[in-house]
Amino acid sequence: MSAQPDLLYSEEEEALRAAVRDLLADHCDATAVLARVESGEPHDRALWKNLAETMGLAGLLVPEDQGGQGASHREAAVVCEELGRAVAPLPYLTSAVIATETLLGCAGDEARTLLAALAGGRTVGALAVPLSAGPGQGPGDVRADGGAVSGRVTAVADAAAADVFLVPTPSGLFAVDATADGVTVTPQTSLDRTRPLAAVTFDGAAGRLLTDDAPAAVRRGLRAGAGLLVSEQLGMADWLLAETVRYTRERHQFNRPVGSFQALKHRLAQLWLEVVNTRAVARNAADALATGSDDTDVAVAVAQAFAAPVAVRAAEEALQLHGGIGMTWEHPIHLYLKRAKADAIALGTPGHHRAALAELVDLQAP
């Protein structure tokens, strides 16, 4: 029987939150993010260096004897939550969570060496699967002939920032350097420009075998990614709610704050309830991943099925309740709406997770 989950934040987690929020406030305010997504360099490499190398947060999930911090998914969830609040253009979810967890499912010296590089933040990794791939995703169309990897994967998140790709094939999971001969990264149009997508083509690229059991390692990485993506969605929804409440208190109409109108109070109260419930499912998923609970698959499926629509609704409500200013390009709400929409189909849609949950608890539709 699984232990009772702990949904509260510890003192250490709150201290971590404060440190990450201070860093983002100094280097990743809305103006900076808006300027960066309009530039040719959507990833903030200087901020990544501060977060991953200086603060050591890229290695939270990596044991200390393998070069990491030896923390857990609970701490990583706090970081994801704060990055979501800032819609930070960083490859944290893709490298420090998904790629790292995938490597933790591999054995051998090659995997350990690469894991230590990712933990130190010096190397950025990306799992070469589409962003929409959920836990249980197959190896795709990439093949390996000996150590030569060939094939094409589209919609790979943060591929432009990656130094190494983890490439699942029917022959196993391979590590392929982004600078290797035969590797081409082609940017693709993406709704969320703070997490850009790209097609990655491998044409006989040299690969290093990490494990023969690619499906198990990939499933581990994608499950952790799906579970901690919920914390990112929570961070977005929480910021949107707080920002909208603040704005409706300051915006006056008919000589009254618009937030005093009963119809708006009801809408914001409903959104508050949904955000509180999102916090509960996000913390439950993070705690289940951290403790290795028998109910981890259920916790992740429940959290993903619930959180994605809430984040989208929070962004839509914020956009409407900000009135005309919310529709302007200068206001950051459109960044949150795009991230929420993109996250809603990332790592499995809510429908995918509801179907998975039905199977897990044996409640199949007739």
Rank of each mutant, 00 (worst) to 15 (best):
A346S: 11
H331L: 07
M327C: 09
E317T: 15
P350E: 00
M327V: 13
V312H: 03
A299S: 03
A308R: 08
R339Q: 08
A346W: 02
L319T: 10
V302A: 00
T349V: 07
D343N: 15
G351A: 10
M327A: 14
A307R: 10
M327I: 11
G351T: 08
A315H: 10
A303K: 01
I333M: 03
I333S: 05
G348V: 03
A301N: 02
T349M: 09
L337P: 03
G348T: 07
L337K: 03
H352A: 11
V310A: 09
V302Y: 00
P309K: 10
L319H: 14
L321S: 10
V302Q: 00
W329R: 13
V312M: 10
Q304S: 13
D343H: 14
V302N: 00
K341M: 15
A346R: 01
H334C: 02
G324F: 14
L321E: 12
A314C: 10
V312Y: 02
E330F: 11
G323Q: 06
A318R: 11
A303V: 01
T349A: 13
K338R: 14
V312E: 14
G323I: 08
V312A: 10
A311K: 05
H334L: 06
A314L: 11
E316L: 15
I325Y: 12
H334G: 10
Y336W: 07
Y336K: 02
M327R: 15
L319F: 14
L337R: 04
D297I: 00
L319R: 14
P350D: 01
E330H: 09
H322T: 14
K341D: 06
A303E: 01
A299P: 06
